[in-house]
Simulated scan of single mutants.
Amino acid sequence: MNRIDRLTAIMLKLQSKRYVTIDDIAEQYSISERTVFRDIKALGEAGVPIGFEKDRGYYIVEGYSIPPVMFTKEEAGAILLASKLLKRQGDQSLVDHFEQALTKIRAVLKNTQKDYVQELEKYIEVVSPNVSVEKAFPDLYLTDIKDALVHHQILSFEYYANYSDSYSSREVEPLGICHYANHWHLIAYCRMRHGIRDFRTDRISKLHVLDQFFDPSLRDDFKEHIFVRQMSQDVREIRVLFEPDVARLIGDQRYYYGFIEEKKTEAGVEMIFMVGECEYFARWLLMFTDRVRILNSEKLEQQIQQFIEQLSSHYAMVH
Rank of each mutant, 00 (worst) to 15 (best):
D115R: 12
N111K: 14
S156Q: 14
T72D: 03
E158W: 11
Q118C: 05
R106K: 15
F157A: 05
H97G: 02
K87Y: 09
E119N: 12
N162T: 13
N130W: 09
I145P: 00
Q100P: 00
Y163W: 14
K146A: 12
L155Q: 09
I105D: 00
V133W: 01
H152C: 12
A148E: 09
D144R: 09
A181F: 10
A76M: 10
I105R: 01
L80H: 09
I105Q: 04
L81A: 11
P129R: 11
A78R: 12
L109N: 03
S164K: 12
K73T: 06
I105C: 08
V108I: 14
D144S: 15
S132A: 05
D139S: 04
S164Q: 11
A76L: 04
V131P: 00
L80S: 06
V150K: 01
T143K: 05
Q153R: 11
S132I: 14
Y123S: 15
T112P: 00
Q113W: 08
L80Y: 09
V117A: 07
S156T: 12
I177T: 11
N130T: 15
L140N: 06
Q100I: 01
T143G: 05
P138Q: 02
Q153T: 07
D147S: 02
V133D: 01
V133P: 00
I145Y: 01
A181L: 12
L109E: 07
Q113L: 03
L81P: 01
F98Q: 01
V117F: 03
I145W: 03
A181E: 06
V133M: 05
K146Q: 12
V131H: 06
A76K: 02
D147H: 03
